[in-house]
């Protein structure tokens, strides 16, 4: 396999922090788009948050959405243009807090597009406040002594939540801190896009990522942190697969 810049990304340096897995996730998506030959047909609905930076790197058609509203924007676009490959990329604040209604609505209608959910348990762009997915005890700028479930509740498990719905076709979660996790994530993104191109409905792929800057850890330490803290709570795996091959 040749390691190169996917053709859907501009030859500009990434604005993501060193060691941030947003760039990894972006690259995986762009790589799949290239493999499927969808560079020109693809429409990327960009969120608000760190992933807004994607507006500057992506070569294809992009729509910038308001915070949390990417699934609604994608609904409007895809419904009027069923032939385009549409995906929304959302962070955890975007998808699991302010945009909870939009993601639930789109998933429940079984909208025929793909949501890539990047979960790094923090509001990175605004400086590291508590996210809906912040782990119990995790320190953030709004939970200085660690997240306390008595006052802030528990980290929201989006895959598990969405898997209760009838309509979605494919829901799964992967951790990007190992090559294996990345390879599986890439496969899942390809599966989600392929299902969409076959008009098989809504797919949701959660990518567990890091935030070295706001976690206050080195990139290497974040990977260990994910192994010991994130992954045991947000268990990777396939939560719903309507079109799984019968074994």
């Amino acid at each position: 396999m040749e390691y190169k810049r996917p053709s859907s990304l501009k030859p500009t340096p990434s604005g993501f922090c060193p060691g941030c897995m947003h760039s990894l996730a972006t690259k995986l998506i762009a790589d799949v788009i290239e493999e499927l030959g969808q560079q020109e047909n693809c429409v990327h609905v960009a969120p608000v948050g760190c992933a807004t930076l994607n507006l500057a790197y992506w070569k294809g058609d992009i729509i910038g959405a308001a915070h949390g509203r990417a699934p609604a924007v994608a609904t409007g676009f895809k419904r009027t243009n069923p032939d385009r490959l549409v995906f929304a990329y959302q962070g955890d604040g975007d998808c699991a807090a302010i945009g909870l209604a939009e993601i639930m609505g789109a998933a429940n209608r079984g909208e025929n597009f793909t949501v890539i959910f990047f979960n790094n348990q923090t509001y990175g762009m605004t400086g590291g406040q508590m996210a809906p997915t912040t782990l119990i005890g995790q320190k953030t700028t709004t939970t200085r002594y660690g997240r306390d479930p008595l006052t802030t509740g528990y980290p929201l498990k989006m895959c598990e939540l969405l898997a209760t719905l009838e309509a979605p076709a494919f829901i799964s979660r992967y951790a990007l801190n190992t090559p294996k996790g990345c390879m599986e994530a890439r496969k899942a993104i390809k599966k989600g896009f392929t299902l969409q191109m076959e008009n098989k409905g809504f797919s949701f792929i959660e990518l567990l990522g890091n935030c070295p800057t706001n976690w206050g850890l080195t990139p290497l330490q974040t990977m260990e942190y994910m192994d010991t803290n994130t992954i045991p709570y947000f268990v990777p795996g396939v939560y719903k697969d309507k079109y799984a091959e019968v074994k």
Partner: peptide, 11 residues
């Protein structure tokens, strides 16, 4: 909120 954002996408 979702409705007006769907209009945004369609537009």
């Amino acid at each position: 909120v979702a409705s007006v954002n769907m209009v945004y996408g369609a537009a």
